[in-house]
């Protein structure tokens, strides 16, 4: 097997609660390869959110080694982490986290601004990303003029627009009705089929079902790590 894209070794995350030390993560080892479709499951308080934050470079581990495409993330400062988040990771949140005052296009354009892409190119890429998620005709709409499913599509377009190495989705269907949820999951399936690496964080088993590999977390450690041996048709 090729070098893993993401490699976590002995990752710990410790919070000081008064005099006590609380281990949100107590030694996690995971390798994630290119074009994997992975879901992370676990009850609340299990540490799955902490794991997601660390994979997403929003948080730094207290101990352990984190390599992202060969670069050691655990030694990076805030600015370098921001760059990784900007270039390599596309976030999709449960509550969409769109800026309410900006149009869909402006929202999708945002990561490109921080990537220092010239304006003309930003517009082209943002429009492309919106078309990709089926919102080519809604670019001028603000979030409150869109349905929940559409908002999440905008958020996915925003995650896709920088062509990130992974898409990190935290309960992406949690705030959607089941029909919109299914549509969003179909979109993730398509994105995976197009070669994207996707990590889903969820506590719903039927959502995790979409992934090829499911990791369950319990008490800050990996409980199970199961890969389905179904060959998908990637053509």
């Amino acid at each position: 097997m090729s070098e893993p894209m993401i490699s976590l070794k002995e990752i710990t995350r410790v919070y000081d609660v008064g005099a006590e030390k609380v281990y949100a993560l107590a030694g996690v080892d995971v390798d994630i390869h290119n074009n994997e479709y992975l879901s992370i499951m676990g009850p609340s308080g299990s540490g799955k959110s902490t794991l997601m934050n660390i994979i997403g470079c929003l948080d730094s581990p207290s101990g352990g080694l984190y390599n992202f495409e060969g670069e050691s993330v655990h030694t990076m400062d805030d600015n370098q982490l921001a760059s990784i988040r900007n270039q390599k990771i596309g976030f999709v949140f449960q509550t969409f986290n769109l800026l309410p005052k900006l149009t869909a296009l402006r929202n999708v354009e945002l990561p490109l601004i921080y990537a220092n892409i010239p304006k003309d190119e930003r517009m082209v890429q943002a429009n492309l990303a919106l078309e990709k998620v089926g919102l080519g005709d809604r670019v001028k709409h603000k979030p409150n003029e869109l349905s929940g499913g559409q908002r999440q599509r905008v958020a996915i377009a925003r995650a896709l627009v920088t062509n990130p190495a992974i898409i990190l989705a935290d309960e992406p269907t949690g705030n959607l009705d089941s029909k919109s949820g299914e549509e969003i999951m179909k979109l993730f399936d398509e994105l995976h089929a197009q070669g994207n690496t996707i990590i889903l964080v969820t506590h719903e088993a039927y959502i995790a079902e979409h992934a090829d590999r499911t990791i369950t977390i319990l008490d800050g450690k990996i409980n199970t790590d199961i890969t389905k041996h179904i060959k998908r048709d990637v053509s």
Partner: peptide, 16 residues
């Protein structure tokens, strides 16, 4: 605060 969090998540540096 929320907006700042979103901007940071998608790659805004402190300087931005």
């Amino acid at each position: 605060i929320k907006e700042i969090g979103i901007r940071k998540a998608i790659g805004a540096k402190r300087r931005d």
